[in-house]
Structures are given as C-alpha cells and as structure tokens.
Amino acid sequence: MIDAEWLYWVCGLFFVVGASFSYRQAQYGGAAFWALLGLSFCYSTFVVNKTAPAWPLGLAVLIIAGLAGFGALGRTTIATTCQAERITAANTLRGRLFVPALMIPLGR
C-alpha cells in the first residue's frame, strides 16, 4: 500500500484554508463545516495508526453531516472572470492551457 497520508494532510489543509475564506465572508456554518472536515482528514491519520480513539472522529462526522444536511453552508457568489475576459486569456495562453490539464492524468 502506497502511503498517501501526506496527500490527505494536503487535502485537510486545503479544506481549512477554504474554511478561513468562509469565515471572512461571515459564513460561519460553512467555516465550521470546512474546518471540521479538514481537521478530520488530519486526525484520521492517527485513527488509522490506532494511536487515537475513533469516536471523536465519528462525532465530528455526524456534526459535519448535520451541518451539510441542514443547509448551514449557504450559497456564495464566486469571484470569477466573465466570458470576454476568458476569451482574451485564451488568446494569450492558447495551447498552454492544456498542459496543466493533461498533467493531472499523467501525474497519477
């Protein structure tokens, strides 16, 4: 089994960063959801290694499910580019846009 724990920590940190974005937009339900999810990813490492009990993680999972289930996440408008900006960007970047997209399958 290839050790993927570091990758789970990256995932976890990614969620925690997401939580801080939600927090800044005063989306406290969303912030709680992402923070808890991120921390659970890291805590799971110790559960798998049997160095920490699993029940706190189970509790966290139930809270996460509850937050998501009762719509605590809300909806936000996402800052992004418009159609015209994208066409301009595509004009400059052209084929290079595919390089990162193709690296995803090849990197596996």
Binding site: S40, V47, P53, A54, W55, P56, L57, G58, L62
Partner: peptide, 8 residues
C-alpha cells in the same frame, strides 16, 4: 461513533 470514525 467508533464505526463512523474508522469508516471516515
């Protein structure tokens, strides 16, 4: 809770 935790 343990089962939920290990499952996750």
């Amino acid at each position: 809770l343990d089962t939920f935790g290990t499952g996750f």
